[in-house]
Amino acid sequence: MIFARGLTKVYGDFIAVDGIDFEVRKGEAFGLLGPNGAGKSTTMKMIASVSKRTGGDLTILGLDPNKRGPEIRAHLGVVPQQDNLDRELKVHENLFVYGRFFGLSRKFLKNKVEELLEFAQLTEKRNNKAEELSGGMKRRLTIARGLVNEPEILMLDEPTTGLDPQARHILWDRLFRLKEQGVTLVITTHYMDEAEQLCDRLIVMDKGKIMAEGSPADLIKRYASKEVLEVRFGSSRNIEIAEQIAHLGHRTEVLPDRILIYSDNGDADLQEILKLGLEPVTSLVRRSSLEDVFLRLTGRTLVE
């Protein structure tokens, strides 16, 4: 569906995207994971054919976005990072007008709008102004709007940033349904749990480059251990204590607020620490996540 080789974007003397290669296959949920400023949104814009690449090759459904912009955009649904609903219009009008932008007939849209209102669970809010909706509802409406042209690829830029947990779960459920229907999803996120939940395959980006590529489980297996033990001793003592327990697990990582011990058996390591006579303020054994993968690859945390 999407094919990129040496894809590059330069703004002035800032390299936003630095020669990346990737491929998105039909029907998969493809993720771009990375911190703010990693080049995810820029990559999304180039795919959405609203930003011209500086170098490299990029094709979407076999078409070159530099030459066939409007045609490619007819295949895509775009859900931008910031909701840009039409505040002057009602909920159902937002969907209708957006469909008209694609040239879809009024007759077709009459049914389509009802279908999408139901999908977004907004049928009861149809006559409200878009600005009167809650954050989660706005986001659902933006996603529904992106589906009005029955796109083969839906592009979601940070779909759940700023939403409360409940609204996030409703949204994830809607996205799963789309995947079941065969819609290819391209998602950027800086939430590891979101990437793990939604993505079949993802690339980890940092400073415009791809650090790793694979399925979430794959990446965790490759770059992290089975379990992680997190211990806190208070910010002043972490570094000093880390030296004493460096022999535990496969690897330890010292963060300003805690120490991470990557191991196959977190509970056993915790017992070792207690045996040394050290008493952590808090301790937690958990499964490894993409956050750990990112930390391993870049030496930094995702959400800073």
């Binding site: 007819a74 295949h75 040239g103 042209n149 029955e150 229907q181």
Partner: peptide, 18 residues
């Protein structure tokens, strides 16, 4: 409901005409 457009008057075919 079908989400991927296949109809002759889909957004894609409209864009392709030009």
């Amino acid at each position: 409901m079908s989400l991927i457009g296949l109809a002759a008057d889909s957004a894609v075919s409209i864009a392709q005409r030009r």
